[in-house]
Design a protein around this nucleic acid. Structure first.
Length: 872
RNA sequence: GGGAGCAUAGCUCAGUUGGUUAGAGCGCUUGCUUUACACGCAAGAGGUCACAGGUUCGAAUCCUGUUGUUCCCACCA
């Protein structure tokens, strides 16, 4: 016995096993994409994680789901192309590197462009490696020989090509426009990188005196009085009767003293404040548009570091928030302030650093969206691209329909440098995919490249096809594009999914992927977002070290519904650990029962229990394959859980135990079923299933094929017999429990039934599992104190001398009878309803009839409880 | 202001096209160390499926409204 125990250790040690198994897979090229393979290809786009930090729970979920599909598809006969990679994360990485340099006492500008880029590259090598190791730890079955980076040569080539083509089509343009400026990051950012947060602001009412009429003034309400130096007009609604006389006249801006016109514009809301709006086109998006409509000048008064500039007199050099306070004081002292009131409004914050955004005029590169959006809308509308869950297509559509031009240039170094070259002699701009040293127009060599770089999402947008070699069109691209699947969180639909779609259509003429599977965020036990500031983040790597990655994966998928947020907690992972432990122990039990066990079915030797199990197995496989095809992972795991735990362990193994030792055929069938279960679990928990698999397959790793529905296992008749046996055992157990009969007290039972043969043949199982001493079938019972349990095919009677406690019994019986009565009446009514009989499907009606029948039988049996003569 | 989701057992959530007696995990109660597993086994308590209408033979499921709640988009100075 001691020796046998050593065959499989008493419990599974994940941490010592997982690394070895992954190495084995990788070394044996299990995940390698075979270009020559004749199989159908299934391509998954891996969202490249940022190199800025470590993988978090969101990545763990994301990669788990992808790997699940990859492994499932691989097992069902596809050639999988799943290319891993990392993202250079332009702004985030640059900020981290700047911070790191700062600690060393070095500044970015002092270091210079070349050296700084080297520092960034060193960062990438260090943290990028860490991340790819972590992706391996999660078990991702991607092809590492194809690993990419968004800033590598191929991606850069794609980016330049993209830029040049769209520039030539005039879809990329350079312009002086109002943009979101982050004074802290010192760069422009795009609209979706601004988060609006509600905050309490002060709305101040200022007097703008009429020029040439010192008695009259307009009152303007503003939350940003410090921008008055940039005022170029005052606007009222054209239909506002209060201000008709002012339109066209000039007013004097307080403190600044410059004169501006009163204009009329529909945009102005008569009901807000005083209905008079100061127009500052250089520092407000709405004002900018008013300015465009009225041909107003843009007066920039804020520096890029967030201070007021030289146009602001005494206030120049002050940071805007400070200037605001000071200027209110001055206005108050000069009696130019009418009143102040507190209001709640939304203030734009930089999504990366949370600093208040200063809208300001700046020369930037933009991508014109209108013509790109149209086909991108169409492909989702006509379902060429399929969102799962479907509702996210609405969100996508709404965004695409209201899209504005995308500001793509960033005033940072780490990223794809904009491939535009300015001629100092003729001012011509040459845009070229390759580095050039003379102006294409005047041939002057006096040129310089644009210092800015591109938004990090500009390269991510090309990821699905740039990793396939685009702009070249290699065989791989032709075969694998469009890809089949991308899985990601709903938080990056706009940043990434949307941009991949329009970029791909524009450049390749194809959609980038057929399916977009959207998952939610992983939250903590209380449902809060995991965040650094809250300190509630759970490191997936720590969890893996403690419980193993299989337990982590299983926890993330259990109960998952796509598109919804999930919660992660230590408690939940314990459930997964228990499940894995249970599988381990079931396998161990089979193996120590007989070392020669193999996965094999001897059809001629199958018992009804074997057939029942095989039937269940086959039905479940059929169901879960449908679930897997629809990406219903939570549902799949729930069904496998129930098959394994309830059917296989609690019933099938228990039935089998009785003659395990001398029935290898039965044991082998157990092994077969377990191995099939291992296969369907493998995509979810690849490591432990692989390990257990090896015990039954000559220590060889590699679960390779997915089981299929097997019509040979369609044993409905025999299954029904086993269901009946189970029903008898359950009934006995219930009564035993009701009477508080301890496990070691064996009882005698009497059964009256027409299935005498079945029960006789299987009495050993019933006796063993229900702790029964003797079973008397269709025998007269000479005791009037009897506990009766009525099934639709048998009445079970237990002499009360075997049990204890009588009073409770009557109460329970009464309740049981009442419940039965209610059901019987309900079903009787239903069957009398003509409409129901006519309109309901026949099988539903049949079921109701059967139920009514057996309920009525049960009812009469229970009523005659103390008159329990067998009535056959 | 516009849009979307959610509301089911004490907690976290499933419930796939409407169809028998609405499920799971955790927690709780009772009894068990019975030839894998106490990370286990057996049994049990606990739900007017948010509310009000409607469609239907039949509604947790479909429709309308109400309330509560979460999120996304817009950004009224």
């Amino acid at each position: 016995m001691e020796n046998k125990k050593n065959i499989i250790e008493k419990s599974y040690n994940a941490s010592s096993t997982e690394q070895k198994i992954y190495d084995f897979w990788e070394n044996n090229k299990f995940f390698k994409f075979d270009e020559k393979s004749k199989k159908k290809v299934y391509t998954i786009v891996m969202p490249p994680p940022n190199i800025t930090g470590a993988l978090h729970m969101g990545h763990a979920l994301d990669l788990t789901l992808q790997d699940l599909v990859a492994r499932y598809k691989r097992m069902t006969g596809y050639e999988i192309l799943w290319i891993p990679g990392t993202d250079h994360a332009a702004l985030s990485t640059e900020a981290k590197v700047v911070e790191m340099l700062k600690k060393r006492g070095v500044s970015k500008t002092k270091l210079g462009y070349e050296k700084f880029m080297e520092e960034c590259l060193a960062w990438k090598n260090k943290y990028g490696n860490k991340i790819t190791q972590q992706i391996r730890k999660l078990g991702a079955s991607c092809d590492w020989s194809l690993e990419r980076f968004t800033l590598d040569k191929g991606c850069s080539k794609a980016v330049n090509e993209f830029f040049v083509r769209l520039y030539n089509k005039k879809l990329i343009y350079r312009g002086k426009r109002i943009v979101n400026w982050c004074p802290n990051c010192n760069t422009s950012i795009s609209d979706i990188e601004v988060d609006f947060k509600e905050s309490e602001s002060e709305l101040v009412y200022l007097k703008y005196f009429l020029h040439n009429d010192a008695k009259k003034f307009l009152v303007v309400a503003t939350t940003r009085p410090e921008t008055i130096f940039g005022d170029v007009a005052v606007a009222v609604n054209p239909s506002d009767e209060r201000y008709q006389n002012f339109i066209g006249k000039e007013v004097i801006v307080p403190i600044s003293g410059h004169k501006i016109k009163v204009i009329a514009d529909e945009y102005v809301d008569k009901n807000f404040g005083t209905g008079v709006l100061k127009v500052t086109p250089a520092h407000d998006f709405a004002d900018f548009e008013i300015g465009q409509r009225h041909n107003l000048e843009n007066v920039n008064i804020i520096n890029k570091n967030g201070t007021l500039n030289e146009k602001c007199g005494n206030y120049s050099g002050l940071i805007t928030s400070k200037a605001r306070k000071t200027i209110i004081d001055e206005l108050e002292s000069k009696n130019l302030l009418v009143k102040k009131e507190k209001i709640k409004n939304n203030v734009g914050k930089c999504s990366r650093c949370n600093c208040t955004i200063e809208p300001l005029i700046s020369t930037q590169w933009f991508l014109k969206m209108e013509s790109l959006a149209k086909p991108a809308i169409k492909v989702v509308e006509d379902k060429s691209i399929n969102f799962v869950p479907e509702r996210f297509s609405k969100i996508y559509m709404h965004w695409m329909n209201n899209i504005k031009d995308w500001c793509i240039s960033r005033q940072i170094w780490w990223g794809h440098r904009i491939p535009a070259y300015y001629c100092k002699d003729c001012e011509h701009i040459t845009v070229s995919p390759n580095k050039i040293d003379f102006c294409e127009k005047c041939k002057s060599k006096n040129i310089f490249q644009d210092n800015d770089s591109l938004d990090t999402w500009f390269s991510s947008a090309l990821w699905p096809f740039s990793v396939l070699g685009w702009p070249e069109i290699p065989e791989k691209f032709l075969r694998c594009y469009p890809t089949d699947l991308v899985i990601t969180g709903y938080d990056i639909i706009f940043f990434w999914i949307a941009r991949m779609i329009f970029s791909s259509i524009e450049l390749t003429g194809k959609i980038p992927f057929k399916n977009v599977v959207i998952h939610g965020l992983v939250r903590d036990a209380q449902g809060r977002k995991m965040s650094k500031s809250l300190g509630n983040g759970i490191d997936p790597i720590e969890i893996i070290e403690k419980y193993g990655v299989d337990a982590l994966r299983l926890t993330l998928v259990t109960g998952l519904t796509l598109g919804n947020d999930t919660r992660f907690s230590e408690k939940k992972i314990e459930g997964s650990r228990n499940f894995i432990n249970k599988i381990w122990n079931a396998a161990r039990f089979l193996k120590i029962s007989n070392e020669n066990i193999i996965s094999k079915i001897e059809f001629e030797n199958l018992s009804i229990y074997d057939k029942w199990m095989l039937n269940k197995l086959s039905n479940t496989i059929q169901e879960i394959q449908k679930n897997m095809e629809k990406f219903e992972f939570g549902m799949t795991i729930q069904k496998i859980h129930s098959l394994f735990w309830d059917d296989f362990c609690d019933w099938y193994i228990e039935f089998s135990k009785i003659d395990f030792k001398n029935n290898l055929s039965n044991l082998n069938t157990c092994c077969y079923v377990l191995c099939e279960i291992l296969k369907i679990l493998h995509p979810f928990i690849p490591f432990v299933t692989e390990k257990i698999w090896s015990f039954f397959n000559n220590n060889a790793l590699a679960i390779s094929n997915y089981p299929e529905f097997n019509s040979n296992f369609n044993y409905e008749q025999d299954s029904k017999c086993v269901e009946n046996i189970i029903a008898i055992i359950r009934a006995i157990r219930i009564k035993r429990n009701e009477m508080n009969t301890p496990h070691n007290k064996k009882i005698n039972i009497f059964i009256s039934t027409k299935f005498e043969d079945l029960i006789t043949k299987n009495s050993d199982k019933i006796k063993k599992i229900a702790d029964v001493n003797n079973i008397y079938i269709n025998k007269k019972i000479n005791d009037d104190k009897i506990l009766t349990c009525a099934l639709d095919f048998a009445n079970i009677m237990i002499p009360l001398q075997d049990l204890t406690n009588q009073d409770e019994l009557n109460l329970k019986l009464k309740k049981e009878l009442e419940d039965l009565r209610i059901r019987i009446d309900k079903n009787k009514n239903l069957l009398q309803n003509k409409n129901f009989i006519e309109k309901a499907p026949t099988d539903v009606v049949e079921n109701i009839k059967n139920n009514l029948n057996s309920d009525e039988k049960k009812y009469s049996v229970l009523l005659n409880r103390f008159n329990p003569e067998p009535k056959n």
